[in-house]
Structure formats: structure tokens, C-alpha cells
Amino acid sequence: MTLDSSALKPVGDTADPVSPTGGRAPVRRRPSAWRRRLSRWDTRLSPYLYISPFFVLFLLVGMFPLGYTAWVSVHEWGLLSGQGDFIGLENYSRVVEDRYFWNALRNTLSIFLLSSVPQVLIALVLAGLLDTQLRGRTLWRMSVLIPFVVAPAAVALIFGNVFGDRYGLVNEALGAFGIGPIRWHVDTLASHVAIASMVNWRWTGYNALIFLAAMQAVPRELYESAALDGAGRVRQFAAITLPMIRPTLLFVIITSTIGGLQIFAEPRLFDTQGLGGSDRQYQTLTMYLWELGWRVRDLGMASAVAWLLFLIIIVFALVNLAISRRVGTLGGRR
């Protein structure tokens, strides 16, 4: 603010007296051209300047790590020993040749499907139910968010006990119905179901609330006219609600894809070693990355995994985008 206007003016300007009469036009022309240019820059540049803090921060904490990870991934890079030789894509080829990479990829996809798909579907139904004239609506709406408030580590501890192989709650309940103990920590599919249920327990309510917010913005007249036309609740939901909340649907599907492919805390805390079971039967890609970086202490390979995961997520997000665009247009022909 110390820069007052005179400092920015051309030298000649201050010497020219601004007379109210005839000489005005030639005197004013130079400064006004300058000012006009300034004002043009102002209108053009100011908006960018105002939003620049976000992008500057994003460059620092978003793009820089991304680029730096790429840089690390083409070097030999020990956790403690630091940067080594440039080795091109060797880290990538070592990762792709490692059988535990493919194992982790398979587990990630399986847990992702078991969590994200039911999660979004249940959240949709839940939101549809909450979007009605329930008694004590606020209470119901708030209570679906409670699981979200609990820290993931605490969830993992509780569910770890609930899904205990020998003395766990679930198995004791199942035993009452004569169903043999399920080995939640041992069998691949059972462990995936257990982990997915932790994830779902945490995120379903959150997604339901986002859906609910979108549903509340749907004009009520649409339902009224649909009801007049004889459409039932289910038909209304499919033909009005779903297409109307499509942007939100896309948002939730994409965020849960990103989250689903990066599941870490739940499987990591599902046993004590944190490697995903004796046979790595529930080791996800992020856990594999962590194992390489902090157990094997090879940051080069870990960074290569990070980049592969990044690419996989982009591919999945695009596929999901395509699919859900389709789904959204099925109900309403808009």
C-alpha cells in the first residue's frame, strides 16, 4: 500500500497541470492510455491472482510431491541411504515382476468392489428413505453420520475383535445358527468381506448424507406430477431422483473409487504385523507401497508403486465416469 499512484505515473505526468479547459485532451491521453492498460490487466489478471493462493498451494503440496515421486521412482533410493544412481524404469520393472504386486492389485480390486459398490447402492437407498416425511428426521439423518466420526484405527480395533477367528463375536453368533466358524483373518474372501464391511460401516452414512442433500434440491413438483401420472415410489426414484442427482452421483462414485483403491488403515490394522496376513491375502496396493518403503526401505520401488497406483486410479475414474454417465441417462431421457 505504500505505492501511491504518483509512483506509477510516467515522469511527464506530474509536470502537466490538469487544466479544466482546452488543453485537456492531449494532457490526459498518455496517462489514460496507461491507466486503461492497467485497468485491462486488472480485469484480466485479478481473478487469477485471487484464486492463485489455492493453485500455489496445490503446486506445492500436490504437484510437487507428484513430480518428486516420479523423480524418486527412476532412481535407486533407500529410505535411510537416500538418492542413488539413475536407473530409468528399472524400479517399475522390478515392481511388475514382483508377485506380491499382482497379489496386492487383485486384493485391492476385490476389496474395492466389495466396498464401493454396496456402499454407493446402500447409501442411495438410505438417502431415498431419509428423504421422506420421517418422524424425528434430523435425528435419523445425523445418526447415519456417527460411524464417520469414529477414528478408523478405533474402527479397525473394534472390528478386529468382532471378526476374531476363534473368539470373535460374529463367529459366536454364526455358531448359534450352526454355521461353522469362518476364518476371517485366514481365508482370502472372508478377510476381504470383513475389511470391506469396516470401510462400508464408515463411509455409507457419509455418502448417504451427500445424496440426501442432492435429493432435497430436486423440485417437489416433479414428484407431484409423476404421482399424478400414476408413477409409484420406485418408478419416481428411478425416473426422477436418479437423473436429477446425477452430478452428485458422479462425484460420490469418483471419490469412492479414489478412496476404495487407496484403502490402507483398515487392512493394515486387521492383524498385528500389518503385511496383510500370513499369505498377504489382504495386502492392498497402499500397504504394499508402505511395505516397500518402510519395511524393505526401498523408496525407489515404493515411488514406482505410487505412480502405478495413480495411473490405475485415473483409468478407473474414467471408466466409472463413462459407466455412470450411461446409468444416469437410462432413467430420464435428458
Partner: peptide
Amino acid sequence: PNSRRARLVTGALMALTLTMTAA
């Protein structure tokens, strides 16, 4: 024009400050 300029300068300063704080 003066207050526009002021805004421009403020914007620039804000961006700078934020960057420096972040750093």
C-alpha cells in the same frame, strides 16, 4: 483506477504472503 490498483497490489501481496507462509 487508484483503488483498482490497490486491489491489484493487495492481491499480489496476499498471494505472496500465502506462498511465504506455506514455505
